[in-house]
């Protein structure tokens, strides 16, 4: 009789997973967490990722993401995947989280990462939530080692770099790109001007600051937009005709994670090239 009751409860009630046991069905709802989860999850463990993670311009693991269903931040859609763990970031809408919890789904909120180090902590946190703590440890240690190798090859001096995105936006202090720029030996124009994390940089300021390297933050589409047309403004073309420009795909440094190592490699290479030039 008790056994029967237990079966009924188990069928009606979502299975409550003990933290030590790896969750069987995981949905991740954040571009940055998705990429880490894709790297760390066991085959079949991840059953849904955010739709933006399938965008080649934003995500380093878009191909892998496209093998999974895309989920938007809608409770019904998430529950339809019958997850026993949902990964969210600190900025997820509170009502969605509350509804998920009321439906009995375990929700793991992973703190933001704005530096490479915080990225390592995130790797470990995601791995622990997925029940593969040792895999996370391995990846994090590997990332640290590669990082140290790359940084050791950078040149001398502290040249000025400016990041220029579509719509005239730039990235200031408190962002992964800013962190990576400093690790590669650059000064970041926006950070020195006290610009917020993602804010427009007046074109005039950019031209007059004459940075040693202009980092164009990735073309996003082959179709036109005013945002990107600005990057070909006559003043920009004139001002940076001779100087070094570097195109950085958005996907390499938008989120903290293993893909940052490639961004760091490109930046240190640019840094070395500047050192040789002077």
């Amino acid at each position: 009789m008790l056994l029967l009751l237990a079966i009924v409860i188990a069928a009606v009630w979502p299975v409550s997973v003990r933290a030590s046991e790896p969750p069987a069905r995981v949905v991740s709802l954040n571009l940055c967490l998705d990429q880490l989860a894709l790297a760390l999850a066991a085959p079949g463990q991840l059953v849904g990722v955010a739709d933006v993670t399938q965008d080649a311009h934003l995500s380093a693991r878009w191909q892998q993401a496209r093998t999974l269903p895309a989920v938007e931040m809608r409770v019904e859609e998430i529950l339809a995947l019958r997850p026993d763990l949902v990964l969210i970031d600190a900025n997820a809408p509170a009502h969605v989280v509350a509804l998920l919890r009321r439906a009995g789904v375990r929700v793991a909120s992973v703190p933001d990462a704005a530096t490479f180090e915080q990225g390592l902590a995130r790797v470990r946190a995601v791995a622990a939530a997925l029940g593969h703590a040792e895999a996370g440890e391995t990846l994090a240690n590997d990332m640290q080692r590669r990082h140290d190798e790359i940084v050791s090859t950078r040149g001398s001096g502290q040249p000025l770099a400016a990041v220029w995105q579509a719509n005239g936006f730039t990235v200031g202090a408190g962002t992964v790109p800013d962190d990576l720029l400093r690790r590669a030996g650059f000064r970041n124009l926006a950070a020195e001007r006290g610009t917020g994390p993602f804010e427009p940089l007046p074109l005039e300021i950019l031209v007059r600051a004459a940075p040693d390297v202009l980092i164009l933050d990735g073309a996003t589409s082959d179709r036109p937009s005013l945002a990107e047309a600005l990057m070909t403004h006559r003043a920009v073309r004139h001002a940076f005709e001779g100087s070094r420009t570097l195109v950085m795909p958005h996907s390499l440094w938008l989120c903290a994670g293993p893909q940052n190592l490639e961004a760091l490699e490109r930046l240190t290479a640019a840094h070395r090239a500047l050192g040789r030039g002077s």
Partner: peptide, 19 residues
């Protein structure tokens, strides 16, 4: 298909002379 395009409705309906 350009992700920026949709946000540029602001420019077209509420114009600007910047840049």
């Amino acid at each position: 298909p350009n992700p920026y395009a949709f946000y540029e409705v602001m420019f077209w309906l509420m114009g600007s002379l910047a840049d």
